[in-house]
Design a protein around this nucleic acid. Structure first.
Lengths: 240, 240
DNA sequence: CTGCCTTCAGGTCACCCTGACTTTAACAAC
DNA sequence: GTTGTTAAAGTCAGGGTGACCTGAAGGCAG
């Protein structure tokens, strides 16, 4: 007979932000924290921790995220529950993983140091546990959801140009998009509207500023709030 | 200080099957089990149970499913981790929920009795815990995934007619589909191929039998096997 | 001031997919 | 044979997409 009480329960979060690489092009980055104890002592890992009995799973994700990185994400969604028997070398551990997006300005608030660092999402070291697999899955989720939802705006401020919005899509999807077709799709989809303002100063025609229309759900609270009949999906349909 | 060890961990599964209603039309049904202890004593609930330390989460779902209903699903996928503080009246409980599909013939193997019964998915009683919410979310997931993947064949045997396949889509999506357009979509998508056989005996032109092409993943093992670079999606794009 | 560069904004056109519909085929029952 | 039913295949207009083109509006070098 095996015991049923010896399974640890933790939450972890994969947080994505757009940051410029050496060439100045925006890329997907994520913060990792260095482990301070065994197992995987001093290896890089996803921020996370235990769940307290009086906080929700999402609350636990937010608390652990704030305690380790000081980040407050603009978008947060549950990703998957990882619970293979051998994913931790000693105690059996089940991790409920969230993924999150933060704006570039919020991203710079991170408490940098020897124990917290930003990494390019497509060039990670060997992480603790199965965290490489988790990051890959979160990246797949981010890219998939970018194509049919309006999460891109979680990377931007309240006002933005079409070029800035397009750069978000290009950085996440890792492919160039035709500016004219991108404009047409965004305009016909109705998810954005012009503010009337323009940005001057560039050595070209001044672009308009846009904002997102209506009530954009910044935090996907999972099935508890949205699932059953509502559709929740704002179409984007970005392709090549 | 709140303790971190007093959180229970369980798995539950929402299993869907197509069964004929009074009018003979196939509908989505699911089996429920009657609770044998507090809380929610004698209320209907999803089949599930505790996770043993030497079994995976998916293994725990399969084992509990077999022990309570004798069902072995043809498709199984993790749905969501439910862990709100107040979802169980006494002990704090986190449930990792799976959703599954079974063929009609397999569905009839269920050990019926006072404690196990089939229910129409859109006409459920008040269930234990937050299980009504969970079923609604699983239904939303089933219907959403039916439109862009090839899970429909998990409801069918190895050979089937286009009318049978279409009836699966119509039962799940709850709307009639144009037979001619459905045929064209299925043929151009390349996910099915004719076997060369036809079904005689009906008082009309004998329909061809089809099979699914290639390696159809009957069990979605989650991100652990498929996620990072592979795309895994077999398009269907069913609409009105 | 005048070209010349840049990016923004708007438009055109062929192509493919879709939905709605029509036509022919092939059986069973009468 | 005639009728009824569904299978199978074809037709056509409309909408969305990708590729491409043209003009607009600024800064900058000379």
């Amino acid at each position: 007979m095996t015991s049923t009480t010896a399974i640890g329960l933790a939450v972890s979060t994969v947080i994505f932000a757009l940051r410029a690489d050496e060439t100045g092009a925006p890329q997907v980055w994520l913060p990792l924290v260095r482990r301070t104890r065994e197992p995987f002592f001093q290896r890089w890992a996803l921020p996370g921790g235990m769940v307290l009995t009086d906080e929700s799973l999402e609350g636990a994700a937010r608390r652990n995220l704030g305690e380790t990185t000081r980040l407050e994400p603009t978008y947060l969604e549950q990703l998957y529950a990882f619970g293979d028997v051998d994913r931790s070398p000693d105690q059996r551990m089940v991790s409920i993983v969230y993924w999150a997006l933060v704006r570039p300005d919020e991203a710079e608030r991170v408490t940098l140091g020897d124990n917290v660092r930003w990494f390019a999402a497509d060039d990670l070291p060997d992480l603790a546990f199965d965290h490489n697999l988790i990051v890959d899955y979160a990246l797949w989720r981010l890219r998939t959801k970018m194509e049919y939802s309006r999460i891109a705006h979680a990377f931007l401020g309240p006002r933005f140009t079409l070029a800035e919005l397009r750069e978000v899509y290009e950085a996440v999807l890792q492919k160039p998009l035709d500016p004219a077709n991108f404009r047409r799709q965004m305009e016909t989809s109705g998810v954005i509207e012009p503010t009337g303002e323009v940005v001057t100063g560039g050595r070209h025609r001044p672009p308009r500023l846009y904002r997102y229309t209506g009530d954009v759900e910044l935090v996907d609270a999972g099935p508890l709030t949205k699932s059953p009949p509502s559709r929740t999906i704002a179409p984007a349909r970005i392709s090549a």
